[in-house]
Write a protein that binds this DNA or RNA. Sequence first.
DNA 1: AGGTGTGAACATGTTCACAGCG
DNA 2: CGCTGTGAACATGTTCACACCT
Lengths: 241, 241
Amino acid sequence: MTVHEHGGCSTRVDDFPYRAVPEAAVGRLAVYLRVLTSMIEHGVSTMSSEELAGAAGVNSATLRKDLSYLGSYGTRGVGYDTARLVEHIERLLGLTRHHSVAVVGIGNLGHALANYRGFPDRGFPVTALFDLDEDLIGVPVGGLPVDHVDSIPAVCKEREVTIGVICTPSTAAQWVCDLLVAGGVRCILNFAPVVLQVSEDVEVRRVDLAVELQILSFYQARRCAGAAPVAQPVDSIAVGR
Amino acid sequence: MTVHEHGGCSTRVDDFPYRAVPEAAVGRLAVYLRVLTSMIEHGVSTMSSEELAGAAGVNSATLRKDLSYLGSYGTRGVGYDTARLVEHIERLLGLTRHHSVAVVGIGNLGHALANYRGFPDRGFPVTALFDLDEDLIGVPVGGLPVDHVDSIPAVCKEREVTIGVICTPSTAAQWVCDLLVAGGVRCILNFAPVVLQVSEDVEVRRVDLAVELQILSFYQARRCAGAAPVAQPVDSIAVGR
DNA sequence: AGGTGTGAACATGTTCACAGCG
DNA sequence: CGCTGTGAACATGTTCACACCT
């Protein structure tokens, strides 16, 4: 048990009245939220599990089970009230709180994320940018001036940053991470291809874009190999579908 | 079984002589590969499962099991030969083949990915860029001129693109995806927050950055709630509300 | 009828613990 | 002795199938 973990646990306390939510369900709930929001914009006020599951790309039983973690907000024979679901998913995901994002490392990726509409549009305003490069300090990127990494702790506290996004080179990632934590940040999205060392009260998610490509590469390799011209002997568990 | 899936299956054919690899192991193998490459650069020629697992942020038993899918390339009492492992992981992941990446949608994110060093550095040269905007066509981004999306099928065939990266707005994503598939692309990395509809011989991975933030938000919300000063009554697994 | 909510079966993934090799 | 490789136990996640409500 080296690194911190979180099974599907949850306590019942005041503003977080939901029962245990499995890790895997959390990610899907965020997807349902996006689909629902878009459906509401199109005037849809009710959806069946089948419809919503189709739009989210999951099995309808999985979807119903996921929604059951919110409580029973569906109507049998009818479906789910879209607005009501949105409300509860947002509550479960903690989106009713204020969130404020800091991006560290204003290179190609950091620059893009600082300007990325998807963040503010979905409730995550970017309120601080940091870099080491003196030439960048003070330069506005997406309307926000870049601060020096040394000021991370102070600025994060002042602007109540809740999420730090690390887009620095690998070598700087751990250092920057420690600075963010010193500034009170407890949630970190890490684009640098290193495993960050943090205390158990800090949550880190890593996104390694090259790893994504490598996984795709694997499936392509396997597909070509699997595409043997001979009929499959059914006794071997191999490739099916 | 609506959507395509891939259990940990694999056939033994000529150039793909590895046994079944579980889905979850594939992603980790890509991580081990990065760690190993970096270790080799630092002159490390042998590593124990404990060391490698630590650097990759996983349990050592998990690591050994993952590596066992490659075959038995460790030495008992000693550890693993780093160079040999790299070789085999690369082979398993299909990285010995030529890969060529096309980025579609040269907005903030597309621009960043076109310039992202992590792609070419890890064996994925970007060889084509596409956008709809007439003002962008022909403009070089990262040394490569942008082509019109209409030319996707032709250009992808010509440059033997194997992986397409979609950074367009959601509304254009399915259309662009179909164009890529028409151009022979069978692996797609999708940054648009929509579920792409593809035939089963196309592999899609989605990266939804806002969903990542929402997952972080959830854990922070839960942590605050869970940080109740009272000891947990274990008997009540109770449901909220 | 029509669709939710969920126990139970199944599938996948992770960790333990130790035999056995170098 | 030390560390790999792996069966078996455990944990998590997914899907089925149907009772039950509207």
